[in-house]
Design a protein around this nucleic acid. Structure first.
Lengths: 181, 181
DNA sequence: AACAACATGTAACCGGTTACATGATTGA
DNA sequence: TCAATCATGTAACCGGTTACATGTTGTT
């Protein structure tokens, strides 16, 4: 049995929550997981095809008054694969953060303060997005999305505050040395 | 002028701190930036070659009693490119976190608690690594590496504590409901 | 009539990881 | 002499992003 691809993992999980079209999967990922797991059409559609061919997912043309779309749902084999992945040890978080790299290469306290302010703004932006989607997460019965959201929100708020506080401290210090008196 | 590749960014920054061989760049990245920016030999050596060809970097065979190695240093053009990148707006952080995805798909409070414990362990591990390298960062004159490290350390400790606290809370609650009395 | 949103896909490109291949030097 | 570390690189593979291509349905 081959390992699930990264995109397969998010697709199977989403389909267990609710049978969906590729388009809907993309919309949900953008809204609810994009701050820790992304997927584009260029990954989703080919992966859905592979999952159908592997028998983990089943696609039925949505009939009735609906728009033409392919509703995908997990097969029993798909459910087993999903559970198997969920039972295993998750890989550690992978981060790529250009703001941190700027900060790392800073040579003066002014550089540090600037990098910190830019990072604070980036974390603020993500936190705002998470605040927007919080009501939707609260209205679900499943506990996962809301805990995830709160963890993300608190993490980004913490990082934002840390950066702001440290930037302010550095500017306070430089003022002491720069003063006219 | 083409954009700097991701690996070029970390290489140029490292070379400004200290002229180095590809091997040394890799060692520094593994030790000091790997928790927010990685690079392997398979990226570093080809990129060093491209940077030499583009005239941003200059490679001199290290002479003297040294081992045979190619010491790379920034050219004036390389310094300008580095500064230009440093002056621009950094891209936002990109994260891929399988633990968060497990958490997101959790269907019961027991699933949530388990996912949180695994995440706490992952953050603990990263925090431990950062604690190990803290003394080295403290001994530098440049301020960048130490602030970066402290931000990373506090972020991972915060996430670790958050996950632990919430996991404990959930288990406390289930005990109330599961009690024999 | 026009625009936004719904809906599905492919192809080219880019860049990162992994495995492979090689060889010198240093210390136990 | 043997293992670890220093040191440099290439090739195959994998997977993600971006741009392209197309057509429908609902709203203004």
């Amino acid at each position: 049995v081959p390992e699930l691809s990264p995109t397969a993992k998010v697709i199977l999980g989403v389909l267990r929550m609710r049978p969906s079209s590729g388009y809907e999967i993309k919309a949900l990922v953008d809204k609810a997981t994009s701050y820790f797991w992304r997927a584009g059409y260029g990954s989703i559609y080919p992966e859905l095809k592979r999952l159908r061919e592997a028998g983990l997912v089943e696609g039925t043309e949505a009939d009735a008054g609906d728009r033409r779309r392919v509703l995908h749902r997990l097969t029993p084999a798909g459910e087993r694969e999903l559970e198997r992945w969920l039972e295993g040890e998750p890989e550690g978080p992978e981060l790529r953060d250009e703001g941190m790299l700027h900060l790392f290469f800073s040579e003066s306290e002014a550089d540090v303060a600037r990098a910190l302010e830019q990072m604070a703004a980036a974390h603020e932006e993500i936190a705002s997005h998470l605040e927007e989607i919080e009501p939707a997460a609260k209205s679900l019965e499943r506990p996962g999305p809301l805990v995830t959201l709160r963890l993300g929100l608190d993490n980004h708020r913490f990082a934002r505050d840390w950066c702001r506080r440290e930037a302010a401290r550095l500017q306070g210090e430089s003022a002491k040395g720069d003063g006219d008196e």
